[in-house]
Design a binder for these strands. Structure first.
Lengths: 223, 223
DNA sequence: CGTCACCTCCCCAAAATTGGGGAGGACAAA
DNA sequence: TTTGTCCTCCCCAATTTTGGGGAGGTGACG
């Protein structure tokens, strides 16, 4: 007997994935030698949800692999429902989307993991085990984003950076693509004053270049 | 007799505005001494539209002040209908919205003017006269946007600037706020190559600074 | 009245950017 | 094959940016 079999039962995995071939790939990697029971696979969230409502609690999945970008309701919406019906089920998002918004929503909704579909079969299998053990499996690039996201939220981002009128004006012109000299002219300032404002602005925005300042301004709606 | 009375009749003004007090303000400024007839005021587009359909052509308004952000259909949708029933009616948008999208739609729909509600009573009165004379009254800030918008459309904007893969990559990192040196490291390039890419990028984007490049990228969704 | 934030102006020097130039190789289309 | 685009690397010099410093003035707030 291998050490895996020391657990009473294999991990119950459910899969929600509309892409048939990819779904098959995932199904195939759920093997007893990995500690995984033959999975239940669904092509959409509705089917999975009705199944979840009708099976007994002892039949509930341990880990749910969830695709987002499904037809019908977004996979992200499903998370809450899953948690409602199967509170102990660990949810792992499996998707091609890498954007912060989706990741953020998923995490907020209560997903345990977030895998990119570029991940190999072994990575997925490992992720299932990790999730089942209470971990939070994530693709490397996702981890990066989560960390930076967290860092962003951690720092006392005072909602809106308190820019003085003149600084806001300067920032606006900077976003227009004007150089320091042009800005000085437009604002009827000496180059030096424009420079001073720029320095102060950089400190407030926590950046070290015009490009970064513009990026921050545009992205955080400071203009 | 004042020179205003040399015209046979006063300007017929219609107003569509849901905010009662503001509507009253506008109504009050339509005085004979300004060359304006007592106006018809409506709190919504539907009412105005039915009225427009039922009155004779000789009763049609000369100038229509239109609020957008009305309950029910958007004021912008109304423009087409108004033109259909009263082709000679000059339409002036009166709103708090300053965004390019709204302005663009309004102009495209056939609005003659676009006023911000921050405009004073006298400005509104002047705008009505200007519109009636075939002009296009606009708040200063609106004019700015329209001009820049026009300029943007004029230049042979080749839809999407054809950036090479490497250039797009560089641009992305530039938007992240990285310096040339950092970008070179991230892209595994020599500073010189990063510089070369930057130069080519600037030519394609028609800019002369990183800040402007970032602004262009972010605003035109190049990343 | 002192303090603090803001605006204005200036000096300075290290570092980065900007904008020319050239040059070789890969690779695909004409 | 020739042409063209793209990627890579380099040199150069003028200009700009960055980030310190100081300094005087205003006006608000306690």
């Amino acid at each position: 007997m291998s050490d895996i079999s020391t657990t009473d039962s294999l991990i119950r995995v459910w899969i929600v994935e509309d892409h048939a071939t990819y779904r098959r790939t995932i199904e195939r990697l759920c093997t007893p030698d990995r500690g995984l029971a033959p999975p239940c696979a669904f092509s959409n969230g509705e089917g999975m949800l009705t199944a979840l409502k009708h099976v007994g609690t002892d039949e509930h999945p341990d880990v749910m692999l969830l695709d987002v970008g499904l037809p019908g309701r977004s996979g992200l919406d499903l998370i809450k429902d899953i948690h409602q019906h199967a509170p102990h089920c660990r949810i792992v998002i499996l998707t091609v989307f890498e954007d912060e918004t989706k990741i953020c929503e998923a995490i907020r909704s209560g997903a345990s993991g977030y895998l990119l579909k570029t991940a190999g079969a072994e990575a997925v299998a490992k992720a299932i085990l990790e999730a089942n053990d209470g971990g939070s499996p994530m693709s490397p690039s996702i981890v990066n984003r989560v960390v930076s996201l967290l860092a962003k939220l951690m720092k006392p981002m005072p909602q809106k950076v308190a820019l003085s009128p003149r600084e806001k004006e300067l920032l606006t012109l900077m976003v227009e693509g004007l150089t320091a000299k042009e800005i000085a002219v437009r604002m009827s300032l000496s180059i030096h004053t424009a420079g001073t404002h720029t320095k102060n602005l950089f400190v407030k925005l926590e950046v070290h270049s015009r490009a970064a300042a513009v990026a921050r301004a545009l992205r955080d709606g400071l203009v």
